[in-house]
Design a binder for these strands. Structure first.
Length: 432
RNA sequence: GCGGCUGUAGCUCAGCGGUAGAGCGCCUGGUUGUGGUCCAGGAUGUCGUGGGUUCGAUCCCCAUCAGUCGCCCCA
């Protein structure tokens, strides 16, 4: 045997992977989320991991530096421009998909996508470079009823409720409110101001006040900016009381009011009008949503309305609204806190013991009989001590161990690992 | 991209200028066809990598890589 160089495996930061007993939980979550999405009539699509760089950048913005591009290890001359890149969210691929298949789709187009996205960030707690997102979006031609702005958060909320997680709360606002308000105040650099205001929950009132005062050179104006984003319930009256007159602002208030009205059926306290919700993505133009655990500022999901996301791909006006569950962040956070109880290490329900080499045929036949009857069954293939075979079942958490006859004329027996009881059983009729 | 901290067995970590240890896990045994507990025994490390100081470095210095927390940025 030649001496092989061992490559010591390293954990790659930001690219999470789980043990089987936790992956099983994650898979279960996806199934539940998916079934809620389908209950509201969303169809599924899957788009490639990669898009053309130009497509990803079509909306512009600062996302460029986070995009992973694709190159071959052995790059030849004409690959140099590396035109393919991993998508960093599912919204842009969907926009491209809709524009491209415009004639084949039925509108309003309601789709869900559960796929990974990639972002070349510095990984930190709750931030990954590869992660699952569960997106639902509705896209329509020309106009999209405001009712969807209430339905999508409701669907998303139901999906969270289907999971065994601590209660979440949805914070909802409308971009038109903050933008209209700032316009009404005569603030020029709205993008900068909204970005700073968005940090309120993370860095606190004082820091934001200081940043804005420095930037605007007007403490009173900074105060006014901060006043609106701290408004939560009874938002319309409180906002109007600030005395800013602006049409866009009024429209935003009316829309948010409508959305909140249509979410009344959700549990009290789970939906909060919160004018501090702004969201970083600049394509949002109306309703914006963010989901959090109570008392934790980190977002575990969000979304919003966009007037014309596909505009860079097609000369049709395609407004839409979409929300996304940050599955990996959500899962990793709860895993880290020890909240997630591991599932079984394998799906096996019955381990069929191999008594001896001579009995292999019978053991295999018993396993096959049980499988045909719908059980998840594995056969122990090595002719080793029963002690070892049982220990294997124990370690893997397999609930039943099947003993084919050790001698001619003996019955089959099955052992319940939980209580240790063992009794004769027939593989063609036995039930758990 | 910038700054702080960290890098020793599969995992969590201790240790010391004279080439390493614990707990957990793993393997074997406690006889003949039966797990989880207990008992006894055992294996395992280029002490992240490269260079330097030194008679000698895992321990000191430098560099580098990786991890981690924070900044920037952001779903």
């Amino acid at each position: 045997m030649s001496e092989t160089k061992i490559y010591k495996p390293k954990q790659i930061s930001g690219f999470p992977e789980w043990l089987p007993e936790y992956r099983a939980v994650e898979l279960g979550w996806m199934d539940k989320i998916r079934s809620v999405f389908e209950r509201y009539g969303f169809c599924n699509i899957e788009t490639p991991s990669v898009e053309e760089v130009d497509a990803l950048l079509a909306k512009g913005g600062e996302t460029e530096k986070e995009i992973y591009t694709l190159t071959r290890l052995q790059e030849d001359a004409h690959d140099k421009d590396s035109r393919l890149a991993l998508h960093f969210d599912l919204t842009v691929p969907m926009a491209r998909y809709v524009a491209q298949r415009f004639n084949d789709l039925v509108f309003p187009f309601k789709r869900y996508q559960i796929q990974k996205s990639w972002r070349g960030e510095r990984p930190q707690k709750g931030r990954f470079r590869e992660f699952y997102q569960c997106d639902i979006d509705v896209v329509n031609v020309d106009g999209l009823p405001l009712h969807f702005d209430a339905e999508l958060p409701a669907v998303m909320f139901e999906a969270y409720q289907a999971l065994d997680i601590p209660p979440v709360e949805m914070h909802i606002s409308n971009r038109k409110i903050i933008v209209g308000y700032l316009q009404g105040l005569g603030v020029k650099d709205i993008a900068f101001v909204t970005r700073e205001l968005d940090k309120l929950d993370k860095i606190g009132v004082e820091k934001v006040t200081k940043i804005l005062t420095d930037h605007l050179g007007d403490a009173a104006l900074a105060e006014k900016c901060l006043a609106v984003v701290q408004i939560k319930n009874d938002f319309a009256a409180k906002t109007r009381a600030l005395g800013v007159k602006n049409d866009l602002l009024e429209e935003g208030l009316r829309e948010l009011d409508f959305v909140m009205d249509n979410l009344q059926h959700l549990p009290k306290g789970s939906v909060i009008a919160d004018l501090g919700i702004i969201r970083g993505l600049d394509y949002y133009t109306g309703t914006v949503i963010e989901v959090r655990f109570k008392d934790k500022p980190l977002s575990i999901g969000g979304g919003g309305r966009y007037d014309n996301l596909a505009g860079s791909f097609i000369s049709q006006k395609l407004p839409g609204i979409g929300v996304s569950i940050g599955l990996t962040r959500l899962f990793a956070m709860l895993l880290d806190e020890g909240y997630i109880k591991p599932a079984a290490k394998c799906p096996t329900q019955v381990l069929v013991v191999l008594p001896s080499e001579e009995r292999r045929t019978e053991a295999a036949a018993a396993a096959q009989t049980l499988r045909r009857r719908g059980f998840n069954v594995e056969l122990f293939h090595s002719d080793t001590k029963i002690k070892k075979q049982l220990s294997y079942a124990e370690k893997k958490g397999i609930p039943y161990v099947w003993f084919p006859p050790f001698e001619d004329g003996q019955p089959h027996e099955v052992k319940n690992m939980a209580d240790g009881k063992q009794s004769a059983a027939d593989p063609s009729v036995w039930k758990i």
